[in-house]
């Protein structure tokens, strides 16, 4: 594998000073970007970790007091609510997005007319800001003026849909809006996967007498395994980072009913002046994502056939 990877140009050793500059020029060009990333990403992460071990409140205090803020973090009922919501939101959001995305991709893949119309309709929410999505859905689900009122106007007087202001149900409105926003993208991923499957394999399966259903269940869907993996990674990442959607749709409420770790971190850091607790929650979020992403990146980068 070494030769395959290292086939790019390797300059001969430099002899004159001009040549030496020439040999170092590429690294010199890359250096500013790398320095920015080192400082603003890795330096800042270390800084945040450091702050999480202090007693910082409104302003940073650089005196290490140990795991104090982690104890305080896990003593907060709010934090547990955020974790619980994350679990509910994450599992539903990821599960439904994948199911819907796969269904849409399979439907679109049936040699239908008007693919060029349907596909962009399913995908366009991905171009919108979560704030716009949240605003639109907040209006659409508004109990007084939105869907509920429309149903009443159509004669379904008993129809009730107050999830947006119902503490027990509000988290599901975030699932709905989130799925609406990203499932089209999941569809695009699956569609690309479907289109990448060798047609001869499917012809062979037909000759072997497999029904359409059997072909999908036994051959196509198992072959889409890498797409499932990618979709889960991307959606997990979006789940943990979700902030805008909650702010725009429910603002974390009613009460703390839709609190997520991201909103928790923000409010503890910037409005409740508990910087060290906010930092501790950010560290937990980072570690959760890292646990998912690092093995994924490692496997993609290590295998040259895949990572290149």
């Amino acid at each position: 594998m070494t030769i395959a990877i290292d086939d790019a140009y390797r300059p001969p050793r430099a002899s004159s000073s001009g040549d030496r500059l020439r040999a170092f020029l590429p690294r010199l060009v890359l250096a500013p970007s790398f320095a920015l990333v080192l400082f603003f990403v890795y330096g800042f992460i270390l800084w945040t970790i450091y702050l999480s071990f202090t007693r910082s409140r409104l302003m940073p205090i650089y005196e290490i007091v140990g795991f104090d803020s982690y104890y305080r973090l896990f003593a907060q009922p709010n934090w547990y609510k955020a974790l619980e919501n994350l679990a509910i939101f994450g599992s539903l959001y990821i599960g439904i997005s994948i199911l819907l995305g796969l269904t849409l991709a399979i439907l679109i893949d049936q040699r239908i007319r008007g693919e060029g119309v349907f596909r962009p309709i399913y995908l366009y929410p991905m171009a919108l800001s979560f704030i716009v999505t949240g605003t639109a859905w907040k209006w659409f689900l508004n109990p007084g003026l939105g869907l509920e009122k429309t149903m009443h106007a159509w004669g379904w007087q008993s129809f009730q849909f107050d999830w947006l202001i119902n503490s027990d149900m509000a988290i599901y409105t975030i699932v709905i809006a989130g799925v609406w926003q990203t499932s089209g993208f999941v569809m695009a991923m699956f569609l690309a996967g479907l289109r990448g499957i060798d047609g001869e394999i499917l012809k062979a399966a037909q000759i072997d007498g497999a029904s359409s259903f059997a072909i999908y269940r036994r051959i196509v869907i198992p072959m889409l395994r890498p797409v499932f993996l990618s979709a889960v990674i991307v959606l997990t990442h979006l789940t943990i980072k979700s902030y805008d959607l909650v702010i725009a749709l429910t603002g974390g409420g009613p009460g703390n009913a839709t609190e997520l770790p991201s909103t928790f971190m923000y409010s503890y850091t910037f409005t409740r002046n508990q910087m060290s607790v906010g930092a501790a929650s950010a560290v937990i979020m980072l570690m959760t994502i890292a646990a998912v992403i690092i093995p994924y990146l490692y496997s993609e980068l290590k295998d040259p056939g895949h990572g290149r």
């Binding site: 300059p11 001969p12 050793r13 430099a14 002899s15 040549d19 020439r22």
Partner: peptide, 10 residues
């Protein structure tokens, strides 16, 4: 090449 060492020549 032509009697001249080119090992490190660009």
């Amino acid at each position: 090449i032509d009697g001249k060492l080119v090992n490190d020549l660009h």
